[in-house]
Nucleic acid binder design. Structure first.
Lengths: 214, 214
DNA sequence: AGATTGAATGGTTTGTTGATTATTTAGAAA
DNA sequence: TTTCTAAATAATCAACAAACCATTCAATCT
């Protein structure tokens, strides 16, 4: 099923080497010989070594994105749950990738140092999915706050930035991180404004007395 | 007014050198000769070079903390405004310090690499101030959400983490950062829950018709 | 005694040299 | 012509020595 064009063979060989020995310890000559070609020939398919790494990261990330999109549009869940699933998935993916393969960190660091655009592109993609999530909610007739969706998505991302950067995790375990993300999301959904709670409580009471009357 | 004890002279000399030439390019011998003492004698007052840097950072940070506490308890402003002032001040201080003196970044990085506890201590201090802010609001009779204050403070910090770490700012200007922090705060206060807006709108309408009737 | 020095120590940084390796390119093979 | 190779180039890395510097401590001063 997988295309057998030279480009794909290169990506495969490089992926194998990178995850085995690391980006830095893999030479173009090794990748080329795995593909039974000369080192120079690699450059007919990629501008440079870093672009191979980027291609690997890009396809991997695109699978992730597809998964996120599924979560964002999942039926039978309201917008709040879908947003929660989405952001939890982002956190878990980063955490597990790092745990399973510390070499992934090297590649991530190299790419985001040398290709800052790439990180921006990823953020923009996820922002787009959050917007789609909200549009879908509206389409389904879920009640939505009267806010600009683009801007809200940007703010949601800013507020959950901590859960994207392992450098900020300082030894926190996944459960602790999840508890924190959960708390942040609660705050983002419900807000700190006391009015929100007052009204919610009134509604609760009203619902309870309605139930008692019936 | 400033005590003239050797310890303070050392701190002064080191502060001057560090901000002029950087932490790495300053030698203990230089600091000692600025204080007209031998290098060895520095160790009667500090366990090591890093501790001098930490002492400098600590006093500077304590001024900042005092300022934050003033903002947190400022009269004539409600809790929302005080929280806003507090978080904006944290952002602005970091931004301006960095802009004015790029060597401050080196020191901050060295300290938080070698003394991770220090960063935690700073965060804990600010969390305490946020709790105090909320307690003060309660004392003043401002309506408050029925939430655990410690936990809320933790979540507020997590959600505004991005504005504490220049590495996450990727070339954003201060106005852009401020606009983003503003957006995040709006979301934290008001929440994304559509109910909040529905109720708020109802209140608005009620207030308007009351005004019209009068 | 306690305070201070400055030479001795050992760990780290710096600078240099010789590989190693990414990238280019002239030209061979198809 | 298009696809590829392999030698040439240039950039980066690794290893080793020299210099430097944080820290210690035996000796000196007060």
């Amino acid at each position: 099923m997988t295309k057998d064009c030279p480009r794909d063979r290169i990506v495969e060989a490089a992926k194998c080497r990178f995850s085995h020995f690391g980006y830095g310890k893999t030479t173009m000559a090794e990748v080329a010989s795995d593909c039974e070609m000369s080192p120079g020939n690699l450059y007919r398919f990629f501008p440079g070594k870093l672009d191979i790494a980027e291609a690997i990261a890009r396809t991997d990330y695109e699978h992730h994105l597809a998964h996120l999109r599924k979560l964002a549009l999942a039926p039978g869940k309201d917008a709040r749950e879908r947003l929660r699933d989405l952001l939890f998935e982002v956190l878990r993916r980063t955490y597990h990738k790092l745990e399973k393969d510390p070499r992934a960190l090297e590649m991530a660091q190299v790419i985001s140092r040398e290709r800052p655009q790439f990180a921006n592109w990823m953020l923009a993609n996820e922002r787009k999915i959050i917007v789609e999530l909200m549009e879908e909610a509206e389409r389904r007739g879920e009640p939505m706050p009267p806010l600009d969706k683009e801007e809200s998505a940007e703010m949601i991302q800013a507020a959950t930035m901590k859960f994207r950067y392992p450098q900020l995790w300082s030894k926190l375990t996944l459960p602790k991180l999840e508890r924190e993300l959960d708390g942040v999301l609660k705050l983002l959904i419900q807000g700190l404004c006391p009015l929100n709670y007052a009204e919610t409580r009134e509604r609760e009471l009203a619902r309870q007395s309605a139930a008692a009357a019936a």
